[in-house]
Write a protein that binds this DNA or RNA. Structure first.
Lengths: 344, 344
DNA sequence: GTGAAAGCGCTAACAC
DNA sequence: GTGTTAGCGCTTTCAC
């Protein structure tokens, strides 16, 4: 067996070896040979030959010729967040089911990197693009549209392309209601409040969640004051600092805390673990997103597990069937009350 | 501004518009124009034109011509594990630093999927391949070698390609020593032991870790009996079941537990949280790998944080400089002792 | 049922 | 300093 040839085998090599033309070999190896009514026998022979020589189609050549690549790209802010890790995993599987090869890249919430990465993906001729958590979806959209690349926004919507997002308002409202129900009034008036922690001003997800939070409070304990909403970003360190500040201000923990994401929750925990346990018992906790370990913390945390299958399923449908639509689809996440440790 | 042309601009379009030849345009746009001694002025003009028309090089065409793609592939078992999430993130950054585009795919520890994915990546003409956590690195190696693709194994070594792995033996020894030091003798002899949980028989990482575990025990509490080593896989559910079984067998928890990975730890926690807290206090816990939330659990867990930068840094060096070497490089992970966990 | 030939967009000899 | 040209490996008309 000639297992280490100088060059990779091409259809020309196979054609020569089999004594037939490259076009016949091509048809046999890419499955279009029934239309050409090539005999079963010929086909078999070529397929065996290809196997023996470990033939592997050159997709750059195929893509160039067909003006498609078979690639589907996705950009995410980071892999190191359970939500986006789940997105990557699910995306991989769904792409494969559709005979597309997934190509994921992280862009660290940096607008310049988002744009540069999308340009690169387009230069590789990706057939479709899924844009998740983009800080500037519309800039990305302009590039995609100019190059005629079908794309869809996930998690953060754009105005110009179809989008599918979490039902953030519902999710935040539900978490807030759970906080109200599972917490007790505090003696100290300054601490008898529920706070919203994390996210950034102007960020779509943040604002929707703030909205759900505010609506629910307005209907229960009374509308929040501006100081109850603390958009201290998406990072763990800044959250840790913000929590220390809040704790100092109030002289203790408030009645309840709603965190905008699981990385923000992590930052909060870094601070909370410096407190004596008795301090923690008077406060209720909730967090958007879900992390398996976070559900095993000593403090009970209500969580909101995003429906990753639902989000990406809708994204694939849009991309395949309604690429020109500009609708925004909302997918309801799943409420995981504290105490329930596992998502079904 | 013609912002939505029928077709993407090519160097031919630009050449025509600029009144010069495609090769000149090509040289200008790919940076080889100094060698051609093209005038600064001409270059500028073309670059502006390219900008205006939003020209984007077709990398399939370039790759076909140059017989390179600019892609570097990596396969991982799953994104939903902190260690591999960190690997993906770091890989992305390091690839970009080298002007390569990263292309990651998950293969779920399924040998068939590993092979199929590697074949696909090769058909896209990836320039290099990083194989992490492969169940069958040597099968992958044969494919890569046949196609002349430089590759390196990470986390699990192969016999035929350069590899870089965690210093598993050292790490497990260190964790075991920490368990011995931080635990107290149990009254009941059956429970006065430390157990190794998770991994699979024959798996390289498992066996190295078992080795470090056994060596350390032999030198301290005495060599482990076969029953102290329970290779119940890498999944959370099977671990949960195994823990229940062990607990029933012993009539309680043992002196200490060493888990092979953080997902295995997660499975154990699912069981442990059903126990009264007093039961937990007599047992010491340690786990390979590291997860931010796991360090905030109420039970103190010693952890071993892998040096992802070190692993991938070495991998890139090998791939670029010693692709034919078959050496195995060991990178020492970082011991993260259980701290004070009064809180979460 | 099969072959010949053009051409996808790019790069790199080689020409001038 | 710039143009001409061949060809990377494949698909796909069109011809027979």
């Amino acid at each position: 067996m000639n297992s280490n040839p100088k060059r990779k085998a091409t259809i020309y090599d196979l054609a020569q070896a089999a004594g037939m033309s490259p076009s016949t070999v091509s048809a046999i190896l890419n499955g279009t040979w029934k239309q050409r009514r090539i005999s079963e026998e010929t086909a078999q022979r070529v397929q065996q030959l290809a196997e023996a020589r470990q033939y592997s189609v050159n997709r750059q050549a195929r893509g160039l010729r067909k003006n498609r690549s078979g690639l589907i790209g996705m950009i995410i802010p980071t892999y190191e967040d359970k939500f986006f890790a789940m997105m990557s995993q699910t995306f991989d599987g769904m792409a494969r089911e559709r005979k597309l090869h997934p190509i994921v890249a992280s862009t660290l919430r940096e607008p310049a990197l988002e744009v540069a990465t999308v340009r690169t993906l387009i230069s590789y001729q990706v057939d479709h693009l899924v844009i998740t958590g983009a800080t500037d979806p519309d800039a990305v959209h302009r590039i995609c549209r100019h190059h005629g690349v079908a794309h869809v926004n996930v998690d953060l919507p754009g105005r110009d392309a179809p989008s599918v997002v979490s039902d953030n308002r519902w999710g935040a409202a539900k978490l807030t209601a759970a906080l109200v129900a599972s917490s007790r009034p505090q003696a100290d008036a300054a601490r008898d409040r529920i706070y919203f922690i994390g996210g950034s001003a102007g960020d779509y997800a943040t604002e929707c969640r703030v909205q759900g939070f505010s609506d629910t409070l307005a209907a229960t304990l009374g509308p929040p004051s501006p100081g109850q909403i603390r958009r201290c970003g998406y990072g763990a360190v800044r959250t840790q600092e913000e929590m220390a500040r809040l704790h100092a201000e109030l002289g203790g923990l408030p009645r309840g805390l709603l965190f905008v994401s699981s990385v923000v929750l992590e930052g909060a925990i870094r601070f909370l673990r410096t407190l004596p346990e008795s301090d923690l018992r008077s406060c209720a906790f909730a967090s958007y997103d879900w992390d398996p370990f976070a559900s095993y913390l000593r403090i009970p945390v209500h969580m909101m597990c995003q429906d990753v299958q639902g989000l990406l399923g809708a994204a694939f449908t849009l991309i395949e069937e309604h690429p020109l639509d500009k609708r925004v689809i909302e997918i309801r996440p799943k409420f995981v009350p504290a105490g329930l440790r596992r998502v079904a």
